[in-house]
Each structure stands twice: as structure tokens, then as C-alpha cells.
Design a protein around this nucleic acid. Structure first.
Length: 598
RNA sequence: GGGGCCGUAGUUAAGUCGGUUAUAACGCUGGCCUGUCAAGCCAGAGGGCGCGGGUUCGAGUCCCGUCGGCCCCGCCA
């Protein structure tokens, strides 16, 4: 029999009453976590977002006791009772409220619950599929509530800090214009303009620049961004950025203010960071770690042997060098004990990242054990050993290829081996700013230059004149913040002159008319007194997932999507009525209609 | 677009070389039980193995297809 809340008011959260409250009468409301029914005494653990409180029902309580007997998991109840000290010897040190209990005098059953598909427990090994279908139950678990509570506090800290530093929170449209470049857009058909589409923003990039042109000087927003690309453990199609932009600043100004923000955010999590964070240029990062998001928590750095081995008798090495590539190596301390299977795994990884194979050397008691030993002279072997500081018991891995391939392959092997050998510390936060990214890259398939960061990123002043002569050497005033090998934010100083912006579009192979069509409003705006400006965006989900030690960003998002971009709880995406399509002047292709979901 | 792993009671898992009636734990239901807190003890219900084909005397086990989940490559300015 369900009862009404009536005029009952909650006097405190479950985990609030403590020893000092003994004797007080309290009114608690929450969910039945567990019932321990002794026939006589009945114990109920009552749960809300603050934690648990043990309720005691004495047999003398008559009808209240009888009602308690019928309580089941996740029933919603309200109780009135007295806070009491637990009898000596029955305290529960594992519970925040373990010294006290509430002796119940009145009980209202506000709602019942169907049997649960899984238990509401902190530690769970229930499949994500099931958890996501019943996400509301999953979210009752304390571990997830803690993460989302911290996320809230981080968002608040962000607002406070940025506001204190003169940033104004402004909203930008969610229905916006599709622009070429970058990720695939999510499109929204326009009913009022048949055949035309809005795009959901990949980021508020252009709008925040325009806000600078408007003179707001400092802007920020905690904002959803959308990218229609395949998902990963750290990638969702909709994700949240802490987005900021500042006027009349250079790189150091942005980095300075943003380090302060990061410090403030981590303080919420009880972590004291000591700025300034280390810096590294892009070329140093790629040279030493093989990637532009270096995990600097451990060594195992890449070594360049191109100079030493370019004249090698080993064709793979010599060819790589003569074609303008590089010869690089990793020296894995103690790696000579790797099994054939380990080496096969590593080779597979190397191949998956574009290598043609993986040359390895084991330095054993008997000397060089390696498929490539026979191609190398004794002098070369000595050079290698010396250059790598290699000793008996080590494993050497080589990458000889175009620089991009050799670096990526060895960089990925480094991460894998670091994990395999337990070289990566579990605790701690290692930040590094990566700066001086190249501005443009050449896309072999599209046969044109593409922006490494985005097309509005300013080149470094010193490289401006190289734009035509030595395009790939032009560095951008861009910077990424990397935490434990994960890119958690990136930004740049923007182009604020329309002539330079037009020039960059030209370099990107965007025809003048096309630039006019796609970015015309920005090019126009740039003509009307644009201040120098720059900014940054942080991935809030990624930051939260690292702070909370989560394996995937799905654990710090209340309602995440599966790898196929579906929401298992609401069953989105789904088909729509023919009438809705009609109103939008949309007809499905036949091929799609067949597989259309109801 | 591609590679890998995984789908067996509500949940997590076991299931041998294809062979009777598919196991266990937790949960659930009922009973007993006055200091438990993963309460305890006793009894019970519950699935036909993601779905669809095929091979076979016989399929959870083998084959093909398909759906779904996870990890990764490509993609993600």
C-alpha cells in the first residue's frame, strides 16, 4: 500500500546525522539499499546521494515493523525516528554514519520497485549494454554519482575562475552553418528553407572569434560540440568543451590564464598542481616520443640513428635514409626476455600503424640474436649499441621509413611496451604544453594542403614569409595541453587580418568563391577592426575521465552513446513518421528504407 | 571501409571430443530467525543457449549469414 508524502519534510540527508545528533528526531527519505530481516529486529540501509543510514525497526513498533518486513530493494520510503548511538561492538567503521542509527517510529512507503535487472552496488561487473539500457539505475551507484558530482564542481570552479578573470559566458547557436574542413557535420534539415540544412557545431570557433570582433574581450562557454565521426573510448559524437577566447593577447597570455584554470579544476579534485607546466615543441615531441601527445610519465624515448646508419649494408636502413626518411630505434631495458609471441604482437602493432615489418635485436649472453644481425657490420653493431646505451638483456626495435611512419610506429610501440612492462606510473598527473605545431600538412589522397589545427590559426610571425616558399615548414601559433599522454585541450592565436586569412584559404586550396560562400561572414567581419585574439578549448569529458581514473569517457557522461552512436536507454536514433519527412521535403533512398528502424 | 574479442537463467560466469533432464554463485519468492551490515539457515521458482539458416541420427558446442556490445586502424581541422 503506497502512501502520500503529505506534509512530511526531509530534515537531513541520509549520511548527515552523526554522533552529535544523538537523541534528535530526524525525517529521512531515500531508497532501500538493503534489508536485513532477523524476524525480530529489521535493519534497513537507507540511501540517498550522500550515502547510507542504518534504520532499525524494533518488533515492539507493531505495524511499522510489519511494514518494514515487506520492504524490498529500491523502494522509496520516508521515516521519522530518533538518532541513536549504536550498541557497543556493533558500530560499522566502513560507513560514514557507522556510529549511529535511526530508530524508526513512523514509516511511509512512497513507492515500490520492480525487481532490479542488476544490483545497485559500487563495484559492478555488469555489462555496459545492460547498464546503459537501465542507465537510471546505473546512475544510482555511488561511484557514478561521485564522478558526476565532481563534474558539477569542476564546472562551477570553471565558471567562477573564468568569471573572476574577466571572461563573460555567452551562448552561441547550436543550429549553425555547415562549413567544409574538419570533421563530418551532423546536419539538421530546415523546414522553412526546404533543401537547406543547419549543422550542429563542431565547436563554436567562428562565433567566439566574432565575439572578439564585437569587443567582448574575453568569452567562455561550457558547451556541447558535435562531430559525426567514429567513436572511441575517449570520443563521443557529442562532447563538452570548456571554450574560451581572449583579445589583445599572445600565446603566453592564454597559457598563463589557462594554467590557472587547470590548477583550480584539479584543486576541486584535491590535487595540488605546480605551474608552470613543462613545454615542448611539436618537433621535439615527435622526435623523442613519436607522437604529438607525448606521455612523459616514463622514458623509453626514441633515438635517431639516421646519421650513423645511412650508409649501412642493410638495405632497409640505407633505402629509408636515401629516400629522405629516418632510422630510429627504441632500447627496451630487459626486453631480451620478450617471447616470440611478444615480438609477434609488437610486429602486428607496427604493421597496423603502417610499418612494413619490425626489425628487432635481442642482446643475449650469446650476443646478437636478430633476423637482421647478418646484414650489419661489427662496426655498425658497435655504433648502435653505443648510441642507444644498450646492454646485455635489452631489446632493440627499429623503425626505418618516412619520418611520419617511423615516429608513429615507434611511438605506439613505446606506449604498448610501457604498459606491458609497467613503466607507466598509476598515480600522478604529468602535463606538457606542446607548441609550434606545423600549420599545414599535405594530404596525399586529396592532393592539397590541410590545416593541422584549423584554418583560422595564425602562423608564427617568423615563418610568415615561408608560406609560399616552404609551406610545410611554417609553424602555427598553436598549442595543445597534454595530460598523461592524452590531449585534453588545444588552441591558438587566430588570424585577425583578412588579407592573411584569405591567403591561408588560398593555400588550403579553397577557391575564393568557395571561401566567400562558406566563410564569407568571417572574412567580412575581419575587415571591420578585428583585434589580435586567441583562445583554447578543453575537453571536459577527457579531463573528468582522467581525474576520476575512468577507463572511458562514458563513465563521466550521464547519458553516453555506444560505439555505434546509439543511446540504448531511449533507443535513439530511430526512424521517424513519413509526415515528418514530408514536412522537411526529405525522401529516403531505397537502400536505406529497407534497413530503417521502426 | 577494415582487424580483433564477446553474446548461455534477472546478473556474472562454467559447459570437455557434438550425446540423456544445460551447471554454479549472486539476485528473486516463501518459511525460520532480536544486533545485522555481502546477515544466517531451510525450501522453491526461473533459461533452452542473441536471431535466422545449414550440416548431422543428434547442435549451446561445427559451418554460413545477421543483429548487438567492447577495443583498435582509417576517420576525428
Amino acid at each position: 500500500m503506497l502512501e502520500r508524502l503529505g506534509d512530511w519534510k526531509r530534515s537531513s540527508y541520509c549520511a548527515e546525522p552523526a554522533a552529535v545528533d544523538i537523541g534528535k528526531t530526524v525525517t529521512l527519505m531515500g531508497w532501500v539499499q538493503r534489508r536485513r530481516d532477523h524476524g525480530g529486529l529489521i535493519f534497513i540501509d537507507l540511501r540517498d546521494r550522500t550515502g547510507l543510514m542504518q534504520l532499525v525497526f524494533n518488533p515492539e513498533a507493531g505495524v511499522v515493523h510489519a511494514k518494514a518486513h515487506d520492504l524490498r530493494s529500491e523502494f522509496v520510503i520516508a521515516v521519522k525516528g530518533a538518532v541513536g548511538k549504536r550498541p557497543v561492538g556493533t558500530e560499522n567503521p566502513n560507513l560514514k554514519t557507522g556510529e549511529v542509527e535511526v530508530v524508526v517510529k513512523e514509516l511511509k512507503v512512497l513507492n515500490d520497485s520492480a525487481p532490479l535487472p542488476f544490483m545497485i552496488e559500487d563495484e559492478t561487473d555488469v555489462a555496459e549494454t545492460t547498464r546503459f539500457k537501465y542507465r537510471y539505475l546505473d546512475l544510482r551507484r555511488a561511484s557514478l554519482q561521485r564522478k558526476l558530482l565532481l563534474r558539477h564542481r569542476v564546472a562551477m570552479a570553471t565558471r567562477n575562475y573564468l568569471s573572476e578573470n574577466g571572461f563573460i559566458e555567452l551562448e552561441t547557436p547550436v543550429l549553425t552553418k555547415s562549413t567544409p574542413e574538419g570533421a563530418r557535420d551532423f546536419l539538421v534539415p530546415s523546414r522553412l528553407a526546404p533543401g537547406n540544412f543547419f549543422a550542429l557545431p563542431q565547436s563554436p570557433q567562428l562565433f567566439k572569434q566574432i565575439l572578439m570582433i564585437s569587443g567582448f574581450d574575453r568569452y567562455f562557454q561550457i558547451v556541447k560540440c558535435f562531430r559525426d565521426e567514429d567513436l572511441r573510448a575517449d570520443r563521443q559524437p557529442e562532447f563538452t568543451q570548456i571554450d574560451a577566447e581572449m583579445s589583445f593577447v599572445d600565446r603566453e597570455d592564454v597559457i598563463g590564464v589557462m594554467e590557472g584554470l587547470i590548477v583550480r579544476i584539479f584543486k576541486e579534485a584535491g590535487v595540488d598542481l605546480k605551474p608552470p607546466f613543462p613545454r615542448m615543441t611539436y618537433s621535439e615531441a615527435v622526435g623523442r616520443f613519436g607522437v604529438d601527445n607525448p606521455d612523459v610519465r616514463f622514458g623509453l624515448e626514441l633515438k635517431d640513428l639516421t646519421g650513423a646508419l645511412k650508409g649501412s649494408g642493410f638495405k632497409v636502413f640505407a633505402d629509408a635514409a636515401s629516400r629522405g626518411g629516418v632510422i630510429k630505434a627504441l632500447c627496451v631495458k630487459g626486453g631480451a626476455s620478450f617471447s616470440r609471441k611478444d615480438l609477434d604482437d609488437l610486429t602486428e602493432i607496427a604493421v597496423s600503424f603502417g610499418a612494413r615489418g619490425l626489425a628487432w635485436v635481442k642482446l643475449t649472453e650469446e650476443g646478437w640474436q636478430s633476423p637482421i644481425a647478418k646484414f650489419l657490420s661489427d662496426a655498425e653493431k658497435e655504433t648502435i649499441v653505443k648510441a642507444l646505451g644498450a646492454e646485455k638483456g635489452d631489446l632493440l626495435l627499429f623503425g626505418a621509413d618516412k619520418a611520419a611512419v617511423a615516429n608513429t610506429v615507434l611511438g605506439r610501440l613505446r606506449l604498448n611496451i610501457g604498459g606491458r612492462l609497467g613503466l607507466i606510473p598509476k598515480e600522478g598527473y604529468s602535463f606538457v604544453w606542446v607548441t609550434e605545431f606545423p600549420m599545414l600538412d599535405y594530404d596525399e589522397t586529396e592532393k592539397r594542403f590541410v590545416a593541422v589545427h584549423h584554418p583560422f590559426t595564425a602562423p608564427m610571425e617568423a615563418d610568415l614569409e615561408k608560406l609560399d616558399t616552404d609551406t610545410l615548414k611554417v609553424r602555427a601559433q598553436a598549442y595543445d595541453l597534454v595530460l598523461n599522454g592524452s590531449e585534453i585541450g588545444g588552441g591558438s592565436i587566430r588570424i585577425h587580418r583578412s588579407d592573411i586569412q584569405a591567403k591561408v584559404f588560398e593555400k588550403l586550396g579553397i577557391a575564393k568563391e568557395d571561401a566567400e560562400l562558406r566563410f564569407g561572414f568571417l572574412l567580412d567581419a575581419l575587415k571591420f577592426g578585428t583585434p589580435p585574439h586567441g583562445g583554447i578549448a578543453f575537453g571536459l569529458d577527457r579531463i573528468m575521465s582522467i581525474i576520476t581514473g575512468s577507463e572511458s569517457i562514458r563513465d563521466v557522461i550521464a547519458f553516453p552513446k555506444t560505439q555505434k552512436g546509439a543511446d540504448l536507454m531511449s533507443d535513439a536514433p530511430s526512424g521517424v513518421d513519413a509526415k515528418q519527412l514530408e514536412e522537411l521535403f526529405i525522401r529516403l533512398a531505397k537502400k536505406v528504407e529497407k534497413t530503417e528502424k521502426a
